[in-house]
Structure formats: structure tokens, C-alpha cells
Amino acid sequence: MDPESDYMKSQGLSSAVINTLKASRKPVTFAIYHKIWKKFCSFCADNPPCQSNPNILQVLNFLQKGLELGLSTSTLKVQVSALSAFFDQPLIEHRWVKRFILAASRLKPQVLKRTSSWDLSLVLNALIKEPFEPISSASVKNLTLKTVFLVAITSARRLGELQAISIKEPYMRVLDDRIILTLDPNFIPKVVSEFHRGQEIILPSFCKNPSSEREREWHTLDGKNKGRKASKATIARWLRMAISSCYDIQEIPVPSGIRAHSTRAVSTSWAEKRGASLEQICKAATWTSSSTFSKHYRLDLPSSKDLSFGRKVLQAVIPP
């Protein structure tokens, strides 16, 4: 059953128009919305909801149950979006719903994780040694893990965008100091806009002309990519394996809670620490606003500068 399509059909829309309107959402979003609607209908079993005339009391009681079950504010917002789609009304604009979401954000404030569970420098140092080097003797598995991790960390892109990378012409250009990749034009990004679809992925060479032993070691991070197209789940697994393997081979306990998506936060945060501007960071990560980075991705990386203020205060014990 597809109650949203049935409702639009009852409003006189043709099947062709309905299919076009439904294409505005990704299949996964449709599946999530449909699941929420089924839960809402089950919740309102004694008084089935009317799509043409939403009962705000039912909506609020449904959200209250979710809040009591421990759902986060962001999840409650998704529920409001789903119900808005089926009722064909912007429920979030209703004064009581808006107030409820505001109250939920205060009762259950979002806890932002500002530290990474894994160490970027530790992983990079492991990738320039066995079993990842030399490339000529590295296994296909280790070469794949190394390549996928380096592409993810140097591009700061989402898993879906990594999956959409194509090595076919004209989507890949190999230059002396970089490789420029363009996403498959059939790929639909999370945010559909000319900006998000047109951004190139630039993978720079590292220590192109090494002049010392240390630079020659780091130059080995420029491995070449091989392999077939992989699913997002597979790429995510490879990233987790790459990080875990680097800890294992150095006999260091593997941190818990390693997530593939963390490469975006680690990559952009270290870029900022090394002097990259917010404009450069947002362009690379395809964020239209720096607030996305500051609110959700910026990590508190260790820095001696963080100690300078406290040290200056304590210097009060030193006679002027």
C-alpha cells in the first residue's frame, strides 16, 4: 500500500505526475517515511487518521510517546517530516508542533562528540609500512583498504559520493601533481543542486619529489587504485577495516565505535588545523555553509595553543 500516492490520486493528480513528485525523495527516504506512517496508524488504531484533515492532538501524542521512549530531537523531526508528507501539510509550522520540538531539544539536548575515536597520524604512519608497502608485494585486500582510506580522507566526501567515483574517461584526469575525479552524472547526491553535483574531487600527490628518507616514506601514500565498483556498505566496511588494521599491526588496541563517516570530520578538522580556510573546507566537503562544519563535524584536536591562555593566567605568580 502507498497511502501518499492514494491521497494524491484522490486529489486528481495523474499517475505520471504522482510518479514525478515521488522522485523528489530518495527510495530510502520513502521507506523511512512509510515505516513512520505505519507506526502512526497503529498508534491511532482506535481513531484512524484522516489524511485530508490531520488531528494535531494525535500528532502531538505520537511525538510524546517517541520522546518518552528516548527518541532524539532529530528523530522526532524526521517523524514530523514524514507525517507532513502524508498529510500534505507543513506540520512543523503549527504552533504546538513547533513548540513541542523546541521543548524536546531542551529536554534532550544533542550531545556533540568533539573528539575522534581514532588517531589519523597513527593510521597514516601504518600505511607507509608493511603490509601496505611496498605496493608491488601488497595484497589486493591491503591495497584496496589503503586506497579507499586515502581517497576518503583526502576528499572528505560521503560514502555515496565515493561510490559514485568513476575512473572512466572523461570522469578522471591524471595530471603531474594530482588526479581530478568527477562523479558519475547519473549519481544523485544527498543534496541535489548544481553546486553538489558539479564539485570535482581533487586528490593531490604527496611529497612528489622526495628529498629525504622521511619524504620518500610519505611518498608511498600515493598508491594507485584498482578494483570494481563497490557498494556503500562495502566501502564503509573497508574504511573501518583500514583503520582497525593499522592499529592491529602496531599492536595497539583498536578503539571502539569506529565509523566510516568519521573520516569526514577527521579530514576537515585536520585541514582546518593545518591552515585550510573555511571556504576551502566547505568546497571540498560540499557544504554550502560553514555552520554545518562547526556544528556537526569540527573536532577538538590537541593543540599547544589551547594551553596558552591558562598558562598566561598562571604566570601571574611571576613578578612583573
Rank of each mutant, 00 (worst) to 15 (best):
S105H: 03
L112T: 11
I128D: 04
K108L: 14
S105L: 06
K129W: 00
L143F: 00
F100N: 13
W118M: 04
T147E: 12
L102Q: 10
K146Q: 14
N125M: 07
E133Q: 15
S117D: 06
L124H: 03
R106I: 05
T144H: 10
W118Y: 13
V111E: 15
A126T: 06
S155E: 08
V148W: 08
W118I: 10
L102M: 06
K108F: 15
K129F: 00
L102E: 12
K129Y: 00
T144V: 02
A152I: 03
W118A: 05
R158P: 05
S117I: 14
S105N: 10
L102D: 14
T147L: 00
N125P: 01
R114C: 04
L159G: 14
V123S: 12
L150K: 07
L122N: 05
I128W: 11
T154L: 15
S136G: 02
A152T: 05
S116H: 02
T144Y: 04
A156L: 02
E133S: 02
F149W: 03
V123F: 02
I153R: 12
L124F: 01
F132M: 07
A138P: 04
S136Q: 14
S139N: 04
L122F: 14
L124R: 02
V140Q: 08
P134V: 05
S105I: 01
L120Y: 15
I101Q: 05
A156G: 07
A152M: 06
V140M: 06
P109K: 07
P134R: 02
V123D: 09
S136T: 09
I101P: 09
P131N: 08
I153E: 08
R158F: 08
L145M: 13
R158K: 15
S105V: 08
T154Q: 12
L107A: 07
F100W: 15
W118P: 02
L102W: 00
R157S: 12
P131L: 06
L159S: 12
S136E: 15
V148H: 08
P134M: 10
L124C: 02
S139P: 00
T144I: 03
S121I: 05
T147V: 01
A152R: 02
P109L: 05
L120C: 12
I135H: 09
